[in-house]
Design a binder for these strands. Structure first.
Lengths: 341, 341
DNA sequence: CTGAAAGCGCTAACAG
DNA sequence: CTGTTAGCGCTTTCAG
């Protein structure tokens, strides 16, 4: 049988209410009694039921986290930022993984509602008009990370400026003499980032007057294997393309591309330069070390949590806090890009 | 205000109990009423409170997961296995990250007790005698993954046979003519795996009569950076050691070692062979592709969850199910090991 | 400073 | 097949 607050009360010779007080507002309890109660708790190995408490106070101090998949390599960094920030604010996180399955996002919200989380952090996947009915009656704050909302209901969002980040990546290549630059993009249902990064590429291409066209770009799904395949398709046209560099929308895809290049006897960066995106921990270790644009994952996670906590504490603020907040990206220069003479 | 079962009852013109029935045992409810209730639920956007239910049935269908850190690259694979298996059995998982902080494991258990999880899955870190008092009054089943128990209370555990796995790795190197083999080990407080892997190395060294000694081994903490540093220390003695191969206790450390070797102008596997451990997804992409011993992370996670679910359903079985269950490891042959002529 | 009592939302007998 | 009732363990007025 579970040890309850009543057991502790009996053991300490006080009422349940007093036990509750030493748990929540110890300063209201006489020092002596407080100690007696604490001791009883220890003796009985009492663990107050967070779930009974939740029922009673109608608040669980829990953040619901919706992620599209957990085997992406960037996930860990994001999660670390989220969890630390949550802990800092005395919140725990309940994660729901949709496995990139669009229809599971309904489940996700329902699941989190059922568990009475006090707020929801939605990551990576797009929030579009389909969410409006959902959002209008959700009743708890929702904050976005690594994505944004195109729904009528705007939502606070934390991410890098995807277009500019890719633009900067291309500019970096251009500054090193590259003019024939391939693009390893990503296209996923319910996702906006791939599109925005592609736009960044296009903008740069136009701005710098580079060669381009559909034949310069191939798509994947952010994962290594897809980067490999996309690069292979580009390579099939390499005799016409004469790419000197290729920019990928993720480090995973860049790593796949490098693998593919190596398998075709091409060296990076000697024969072709490769630029990544994300700055995964591992990219500093591989050969060649990957030049990439870093996303501040941990900070994005932390900021999103902090905004969420604010909203949980003062829901009135909701309307004031809805824009997309861009966190700074940064080019980290390593070895996978070569300057053309 | 939250929509409750009473609201639905009123709307459907039935009693709360009936609503509860359509939620839990719909077959007990007349088809007509059932439909009426379902419709009321939809109209009101009703989400039954899992927390109120939990309080009432004294069961949350939740598995508590304790992990020592989430930024290790193997974590994702393990977690994927755990989550899928949990979902398959209608359980959710509540994760607690101790950040390798030994004293936080007490918090972990306390936290999970408070949240009334029905069972606990403890991963990676050792369970020693210090846990006995805890375990003796925990009151819910505990299962281990990627670790084992040296406590008086034995606990079911799922992992590979660490000693044999490393033995096999060394044997693989020996079969390819290597006799001067360095070892990149790991030593972490509250951890047993590193020790066991070291023993596997020693056994192999003895079995095959290899050169060895303290100077052949350096330690890290499983992470890439530590692999880099450990390799660097080995390299300082390389003129005496004349290592032709080095075996690491993790792919991360192996990758760090390869990086270190490259930084010192040594090529893998031409100048020195490197063997990893884990078979991370990324190791098939890097150059050179890593030869390693694969751990079946997903299956380990899945099996651990399944045992846990069994125990949650029939706690009497506890005493019958306590051994360490070894899942098969496997050597994955790739490019980082060269056969000496 | 402390206790009694009501209630959070749901389920589980027990009647009917 | 359905309703009534009594909790699950905790918090929170309201008295004292």
């Amino acid at each position: 049988m579970r040890v309850t607050i009543r057991d502790v009360a009996r053991q300490a010779g006080v009422s349940p209410a007093t036990v509750s007080r030493v748990l929540n507002r110890p300063e209201l309890v006489d020092e002596q009694t407080r100690e007696r109660v604490r001791q009883a708790m220890a003796e009985l190995d009492f663990h107050p039921s967070a779930i009974a408490r939740g029922l009673s106070v109608r608040r669980t101090d829990t953040i619901g986290l919706i992620v599209p998949g957990i085997t992406d390599l960037f996930f860990n960094e994001l999660y670390a930022g989220i969890e630390q920030a949550a802990a800092r604010h005395g919140r725990k996180v309940l994660m729901y993984n949709t496995e990139n399955n669009a229809h599971r996002v309904l489940d996700a919200f329902s699941f989190l509602k059922q568990h009475e989380v006090d707020g929801i952090l939605y990551t990576s996947a797009l929030v579009d008009e389909d969410f409006d009915p959902l959002l209008s009656r959700i009743g708890i704050p929702v904050v976005l990370a690594l994505t944004e909302s195109t729904a009528k209901t705007p939502l606070p969002a934390f991410k890098v400026d995807e277009r500019r980040a890719v633009f900067d990546a291309i500019a970096y290549l251009v500054a090193r003499g590259h003019r024939r630059i391939g693009f390893l993009g990503a296209r996923l249902p319910n996702e906006i980032t791939g599109q925005q990064r592609y736009e960044g590429y296009l903008q740069a291409v136009r701005y710098f007057g580079l060669e381009t066209g559909d034949t310069f770009v191939e798509y994947g799904n952010y994962r290594m294997e897809s980067g490999y395949q996309a690069m292979r398709r580009l390579l099939e046209r390499q005799s016409e393309l004469r790419l000197t560099a290729v920019a990928a929308v993720s480090d995973e895809m860049a790593m796949g591309a490098i693998r593919c290049l190596a398998d075709h006897g091409l060296r990076v960066p000697d024969d072709i330069s490769v630029m990544g995106f994300d700055d995964l921990r591992v990219t500093a270790m591989i050969t060649p070390r990957l030049t990439t644009v870093a996303q501040p994952f941990r900070e994005i996670g932390a900021r999103a949590v902090e905004r969420l906590v604010e909203l949980m504490e003062q829901p009135e603020m909701a309307s004031a806090q809805q824009g997309v907040y861009y966190l700074p990206h940064q080019i980290v220069e390593r070895e996978s890009v070569r300057a053309l003479l």
